[in-house]
Design a protein around this nucleic acid. Structure first.
Length: 223
DNA sequence: TATAGGATAGGCT
DNA sequence: GCCTATCCTATAG
């Protein structure tokens, strides 16, 4: 089940990885990278297999749509390379990586990972689960399994001396990336729901759900 | 296998 | 007051 990672040293992604490109390109290139956490001295990690780009202010699916700048969205406006953690439905934390230069509210949502290390710990954090795939096959699951919560808001992910959250190049290659509509859109999102800003590793069982081919026509219009 | 509903809280109109 | 970048369980087929 596990992806074979090429041996040899894996390299920490530098800060420039997050600031020197557009959020959509970064979301695509994060598929196949490694996200790791060291929380309470325990190391967990996984291969990123699914991401989404959120590109405010001109993206109605983004929390910073129309440049809504509030205490919640403030972190998104920071320089890229830090965490944005958001609680969805009052229950589930979601792991996002801020990208771009300061002032651009751009983030990448980590939607699914394939577990690599610390699987026992991830299982404990998640509680009982029906099968191995259910461990990290969704954004809320990913945050819980990795132990990321709102206390980690604005944490840098590129700092060699801060191992709380880090992203690495895996050296993994030979996989295909599928792109499609983002998950969880509604008619209130408007035309932005149809931007192909979701990326996932083809045929990977940890991807949260099948490719969304189209949304109902009703979503094109808001009442 | 597919679908429906509840949990749960904070942000925004 | 309504919506939300979700997850889990129960129930029906």
């Amino acid at each position: 089940m596990l992806i074979p990672i090429p041996s040899g040293p894996s390299s920490l992604l530098p800060k420039s990885f997050y600031t020197g490109n557009d959020v959509v390109n970064i979301a695509r290139s994060l598929v196949g990278k490694i996200i790791s956490t060291k929380i309470d001295g325990i190391h967990t990690s996984g291969i990123i297999v699914e991401t989404e780009a959120y590109r405010g202010p001109d993206d109605q699916a983004c929390h910073a749509k129309n440049d809504i700048r509030t205490p919640r969205t403030e972190v998104m406006y920071h320089e890229g390379g830090i965490l944005y953690v958001y609680i969805c439905y009052g229950v589930h934390p979601m792991v996002n990586i801020v990208t771009g230069e300061e002032g651009n509210p751009h983030v990448v949502l980590i939607r699914a990972i394939e577990p690599l290390t610390g699987i026992e710990t991830m299982s404990e954090r998640r509680g009982f689960y029906r099968n191995a795939v259910g461990l990290t096959s969704g954004p809320g699951k990913v945050a819980t399994a990795l132990g990321i919560h709102r206390v980690h808001q604005a944490k840098p992910v590129w700092n060699p001396s801060d191992a709380i959250v880090q992203l690495y190049d895996s050296g993994l290659s030979g996989f295909n990336i599928v792109e499609g509509y983002r998950v969880g859109m509604s008619k209130y999102t408007g035309p932005c729901a149809f931007r192909p800003w979701r990326f996932f590793m083809d045929k990977n069982p940890f991807v949260s759900r099948p490719l969304q081919v189209h949304y109902p026509d009703a979503w094109n219009a808001v009442d």
